[in-house]
Amino acid sequence: MGIKIQNISKQFDDFTAVDNVSFDVAKGELVALLGPSGCGKSTILRIISGLEQPDKGNVFINGKNVDTLTPQQRRVGFVFQHYALFKHMTVEKNVAFGLEIKKKNKKDIAERVSELLDLIGLTGYRKHYPAQLSGGQRQRVALARALASEPGVLLLDEPFGALDVKVRENLTRWLHDKLNTTSIFVTHDQKEAMELADKIVVINRGKIEQMGIASQVYDHPANRFVAGFVGNVNILDSRCINDEIYLKGINHKIGTRDKKVPAGRDLVLFVRPEDIVISSKKNGKETSPARITNINYRGSHRELDLQMKGLRIKAFEYKNHNAEYLWHEDQTVFVRFNKYKVFEQNAFN
């Protein structure tokens, strides 16, 4: 058992930061807390570490209730958003700090520090100060410092936010492959969460919206918020008439109603750009005409802006089996929504 959080709530003056949140993290699992800024995800991390006291609820670390323990006693590793390295100490001293506080003997400390510096590839930087390091190097030092005293769990607050893409990729791979600690990291970047986490917890306004592996959250969003927040998506007003779903202002049928969707109501339709199928000919009732107004090259694919009557829709185009792109600007094509999701218009979520 790694981390267990039960019915945690936290109020700051009249702002509810965390609202009755519960989730489990299995031993060795890497979980992402994903949500927009100010959604309470960092507060959850601080509550687990003991830096913040919850108003209600319990926290268990490795099966032990830690509610009454101070941050010093909880044995968690914490990597802060801006790393919070001790600026007046060298890399070596930063990493050794936790061990020196615990009064480990000098030889063991030196060994452990060397081992960690080797692991993060900064052996040559022992005597450097944080100000002399790049963002990625600082980040690694912060990780090494957190790992030095072998914490039971590792908590990371937006650990990759300030890093450029390449460095981030290296670090995430490193974290995933070399580390086996139970970890929670906070992020607002859904890509990062999907690439890295074994499980994603989507949080909004202090509440859990959905929990699951990346494909569940991406392909089967539980509600409007998750559908809109995770991944690229077109959000379109639609309507259900006689068991058939139509986009507002367009007479073509998009699809038929599934049991969960109430009939005769205003709906919101979520369709991902990669789930839009484009063809040159109309085939089947569910295909609507659209004009390509703009094409943007994105490296691995192209992003098409489609004008469908009054609606603007984004679609992705991937190369065909002959490794070429088919469409050009100003072309009229037919569009089908291969996969989409509808939610009630007025539902809060």
């Binding site: 101070t70 010093q72 914490f78 802060f80 801006h82 001790f86 600026k87 700090f97 936790g98 506080i101």
Partner: peptide, 19 residues
């Protein structure tokens, strides 16, 4: 933040102040 990291690393308030 630096003080909070020190706490999480096990340093007491007094140790954190001095170090």
């Amino acid at each position: 933040e630096q003080e909070e990291s020190a706490y999480v690393l096990g340093a007491s308030q007094w140790q954190t102040f001095w170090r």
